[in-house]
Write a protein that binds this DNA or RNA. Structure first.
Lengths: 128, 128
DNA sequence: CTTGACCTTCCAGTAACTGGAAGCCCTATC
DNA sequence: GATAGGGCTTCCAGTTACTGGAAGGTCAAG
């Protein structure tokens, strides 16, 4: 399989797939013409990476998860810890965003949004 | 005032303040020795920027907001539109993160987290 | 043989800083 | 006057995870 086929199957752009090879997440074989040749194992790995990325894991986390996935002697505790740390990170981000959301919602509601200059949003930013 | 004083007052690191000058958000005066000299207006601007940033506005949005703030003939509608767009962006991000959160919570709950290799998290990532 | 769709590599840019190096400035102390 | 410290300056590189684009090789069809 060539890169565009794998791209279609995994949903990852060719650029991303090349990038993942660059940083050593995959090692596809090469044809005599220099084209990458993807085996099912490569596609499988890429799908794994894609899924981990949609769950928000960092590339370095993905690297670790892949290593754990391929390690038959892994402890599920290691996977769980990673996931829990990531989850905590997400919880924190959500809390931050919700705080912004609350403030912005309030300010937007207060703002007339007309052709006059008076604006509670700017007043808030300026802390007057 | 020197940069470290302004840093203390605004909570912005000196590096960030220099960066904001670099990209043209502020234009502090200079002393004969080359040191930046901050007037109250600069400090005020930096506080404005800091607050806008904590609300998650991008630097370019901040630039626009500053311009609107300084434009006495602005329409509050322009400010409101910017804030609404930003709010929509935040809503979207929160939704994405909550989706990740739900999946991860579920997976973490399912995972024994012991010294055995069997792991629902990895199974999910591998789509088995 | 040419055209068009592939594929390759390499370089640069994105967002918003942050760390670090090299070096000047100022004040206090010995 | 020399020196030590802390603060200031600029400039360069690195961060994250790609993405766009240029220059050029490859392949199948007509």
């Amino acid at each position: 399989m060539n890169i565009s086929d794998v791209s279609k199957r995994t949903g990852l752009p060719p650029k991303t797939i090349r990038y993942y090879e660059d940083i050593g997440l995959i090692r596809p074989a090469r044809d005599t013409n220099g084209y990458r040749v993807f085996q099912d194992a490569d596609t499988h790995k890429l799908a794994f990476l894609g899924r981990a990325r949609t769950l928000g894991f960092s590339i370095e986390d993905c690297r670790t998860l892949m290593a754990l996935y391929e390690d038959q002697d892994r402890n599920s505790a290691d996977v769980k810890r990673l996931a829990q740390e990531h989850l905590a990170h997400i919880d924190e981000k959500i809390a931050q965003l919700q705080s912004m959301q609350a403030t912005l919602r309030h300010l937007v509601r207060e703002c007339a949004g007309d052709n006059r200059p008076d604006c509670p949003i700017l007043r808030d930013l300026a802390q007057d």
